[in-house]
Amino acid sequence: MKSAILSSVPTIVMQPAGAVCRACGVDCTAEATGRPRRYPSDLRDSEWALIASLLPVPAADTPRGGRAEVHCRRAIIDAIFYVADNGCKWRALPVDFPPRSTVHGCFTRWREQGVWDGMNDVLRDRERMRQGRKAEPTAAVIDSQSVRAAETVGKGSRGWDNAKKVGGRKRHIAVDVLGLLLVVHVTAASAQDRDAAFFLLQRLRLLYGKITLVWADSGYDYGRLIDGARRILRLTVQVVRRTDDVTGFVVLPRRWVVERTLSWICQRRRCVRDYERLPGNHEAMVTISMIMLMTRRLARPRTALPHAA
């Protein structure tokens, strides 16, 4: 199913775990490199061990060949995570990271190659199995969030969300029942949820063939959307409505899961606003924010669950 939508993406060969870094000359998953860990976003050794094997093989090690890598990949990932976590400009990267052009070039190239999406998929499957669930989800929850856009966002890809009084872009996400990211799609803030949902649900069907049920809020209560999803995509869209006699904030069944995920994403300052000129770059930043979350969880020491009485 996933190959149907990723057919246009170049085939990525992942490097084996424990591979020697061409820049450092050592196995960075087992031996410390010259750059000390000084920022909260820096990867711990156990976290880097999870990510290192999910990166593509360096071009110099492929049959087609290429230029040898000069900078350590762990330092590059640390720099990308630093931008995502702190929200700074690419030009404002601290000097102990590789050059800005190298870091941004890797970020963009890996986005185009589908590395971030593939990394998110692998880590999500591992986290689901760690929590006692099957790797492939069977249900999803969708929602959207409008965020203000910086001056770097072009006029052609931004809009005005009159309901939220926000000018910028809107990110539409689909998550599993644990709140882990499945699909993200970025549009202008003026886009209606029900219109963007057609594309979101189509990607869900292509990527995750076992999903049959999708929960949504009343913004998706649109006859053509619900009927089309059932007839064409074989997806049941169930709208979770808010009762009229309830005032103030209330936790609604299933909807709170995706709303919690949106709050997780906003913990990364780069995602509080949209600074990316390309919508695809903001989608990558949202994906990276979830990669950082899952990496921390998977590397955390496992605690024994209490026995049932």
Rank of each mutant, 00 (worst) to 15 (best):
A188M: 05
G179I: 01
L181I: 03
H172D: 01
T247F: 03
K164V: 00
A197R: 07
L201R: 09
G179L: 05
L206A: 15
G209L: 03
D161C: 10
R194C: 05
L181Y: 02
Q238M: 12
L252Y: 15
V251C: 13
R231G: 08
T187V: 04
L225S: 07
A163W: 06
V177C: 15
V177P: 10
V183Q: 11
L201D: 04
G167F: 11
R224K: 13
D221E: 12
A163P: 04
G248E: 00
G223D: 13
A216D: 01
L225M: 08
Y208V: 06
R205N: 12
T247K: 12
H172V: 05
D217G: 15
D161R: 07
Y220K: 01
A174G: 01
V166R: 04
G248Y: 00
V184I: 09
L252P: 06
K170Q: 06
K164M: 00
L180K: 13
N162M: 13
V177E: 12
V184S: 14
V246L: 10
R205I: 03
Q238I: 13
F198A: 15
S218D: 11
G248N: 05
D195L: 09
V240F: 01
F199I: 09
R203K: 14
A216R: 02
N162C: 14
V240S: 03
V214N: 05
V175A: 04
K210H: 15
L225F: 07
R194S: 08
V250I: 11
V175R: 04
D176S: 13
L178N: 15
L182S: 14
T212H: 14
F198P: 06
L181S: 03
L200K: 06
D193R: 00
I226C: 08
G167D: 03
D227Y: 04
V184C: 06
Q192T: 01
Y222C: 07
V237Q: 07
V237K: 12
S218L: 06
I173V: 09
L233D: 09
D161S: 07
L182Q: 14
T247G: 08
L178Y: 06
R230A: 11
V175K: 06
L182V: 14
L180P: 13
A188S: 06
V237F: 08
L213I: 15
L235R: 02
L213F: 11
P253Q: 01
A188W: 01
G219Y: 00
D227P: 06
V183M: 03
R242P: 10
R171S: 09
Q192G: 02
I211V: 15
R205C: 09
L182N: 14
R203H: 08
A189V: 09
T187S: 01
G223K: 14
R205M: 08
Q192D: 08
